[in-house]
Design a binder for these strands. Sequence first.
DNA 1: ATCCTAAATGCAACTTTGTTGCAAATATAT
DNA 2: ATATATTTGCAACAAAGTTGCATTTAGGAT
Lengths: 141, 141
Amino acid sequence: MKKESLKEKVKSTGLKNTPLREEVLKIFTEARKALSSKDIIEKLGKKYDRVSIFRTISTFAENGVIHAIPTSSDYVVYSLCRDNCATAEHLDHHYHFFCRRCGNIFCLNDFEFYNIKLPRGYKAESVNILFEGVCKDCSQN
Amino acid sequence: MKKESLKEKVKSTGLKNTPLREEVLKIFTEARKALSSKDIIEKLGKKYDRVSIFRTISTFAENGVIHAIPTSSDYVVYSLCRDNCATAEHLDHHYHFFCRRCGNIFCLNDFEFYNIKLPRGYKAESVNILFEGVCKDCSQN
DNA sequence: ATCCTAAATGCAACTTTGTTGCAAATATAT
DNA sequence: ATATATTTGCAACAAAGTTGCATTTAGGAT
Ligand SMILES: [Mn+2]
Ligand SMILES: [Mn+2]
Ligand SMILES: [Zn+2]
Ligand SMILES: [Zn+2]
């Protein structure tokens, strides 16, 4: 996804441009890490109803504005879809890094894509690669 | 993890061998797919308290009997740790497949391991690779 | 075999997270 | 400006997981 405004995005998806959606999009745009629904509610929960925030996140995810990142936790985190989240050889691929120290999840962009072979019969449309370890910032301190 | 009985596992972890634990372990051993807490509670919830089941699953995960599998859903699924879940070149790696049709998650064993390079500063201790698509059974029918 | 003790379980209450139905508000096309 | 489909807020609900505590039990010691 290009760094386009929500207004531009609206044109392609049919979503209406509302104050809540602009604020949520702004938060994702400025975040250096993946965010959970809880994270967004903590930031906007006094200004907007939590139900609307949940619905905004769902709508964004359904329309390809953000994408859910697989984690081993019982909550989902989301991040803006970027250009290089796109397909390579018809396989949508995502690389993310979960830091054990700070607990944050980061998108790893500009990655060389490995076309890992699957067992016979399995047909993959996307692959999510989640590293776990210590992030750049945490390993310096 | 070897195909050892819980009794053997107890020796190494200090866990007590109880009826609930034996039943949970049996369910995981016989399952051909990854299971959620809900799945286990549906099978054992009339016989045991859900709290105890939650605690059993946590204990198993903490002691390396089972491992959590990253997904994009708001629930976690678990699978038995197998021998080849072990480390290769000091990087614990797991390959799983989420089927869009049946909704099941399968362990993909015996995989060639790719040592994917990380950006400078990031130190990975494990990597989880989650494919999404159509599984063997579902693509035949 | 019995006793002892730390660990495991069951139960009740609670919290967190997400969902549903519906009425009121509002963004956008005409 | 008006019309209308979409979005939002509110209340109620539901699912999933947690906490505290009393009771029970597994497994080692006697
Ligand atoms: Mn990403
Ligand atoms: Mn596995
Ligand atoms: Zn970190
Ligand atoms: Zn399937």
